[in-house]
Nucleic acid binder design. Sequence first.
DNA 1: CCTCGGATCAGCT
DNA 2: GCTGATCCGAGGA
Length: 232
Amino acid sequence: MADRWSTEGRSSEPRRRLGRSFFDRPTVRVARALLGTTLVVRDGAEERSVLLSETEAYLRGDPASHAFRGPTRRNRSMFGRPGTLYVFRIHQVVCANLVTRCGEAVLLRAGTPNLGADGRTSGPGRLCRYLGLTLSDDGRDATRDRRVMVLARGRRPRAVAVGPRVGIRQAVERPLRFAIRDEPSVSRPRPGRPPTSASPSRSRGDGSSRRTRRRRRPSSAGGTSGGRTGGR
DNA sequence: CCTCGGATCAGCT
DNA sequence: GCTGATCCGAGGA
């Protein structure tokens, strides 16, 4: 029961471990509130931690979310209690989320290592790799688990950049990516960059500009480009 | 059973 | 900026 954890990084005072109530809030709020917190992963005697610098929110009814089509064997952790770790693999790369409310979660995209400073921690795959998170960590309860925990931040970030999420093909324009401005660990492209009138490259307006996957099998060229709830 | 395509990353143009 | 690697879950036949 480590309620407190002495970090030797930037702050000398111990920080509280975040509990259920922190995660049991609207996902966007949690995604922002996670910026500046410390994620700790223990592996026996060894331990690594990062100051979270970049997150993304995945909501209910969100076509980009793994939970969009309901629970499956792979995404079941997303329907767990607030604070549950949802770890998945894509292209041989492991990524981690923290579940907020049922079916919603926050993807952990980047962090700044607390020890020293080396280690590639920009991007969800590299972050997990640095921390040593694997598929076996899927389903852990980060509010109680002995190996994975999240510690409260000292101060809230001075400025938060907001932008569209990375790497998705659905709901690409929703501003659900959050990052601490000026943190070097934030992955590219850096969010929050105001649309310069000189750069017309609006990339993907509607039809994904990202290569139209074409393998063999023409079968039926499905041009399903729809679904885009324009909230605000 | 078979096929599609991905919440990424590295590497080349 | 754009492409390929690479493999397994999800979903349809």
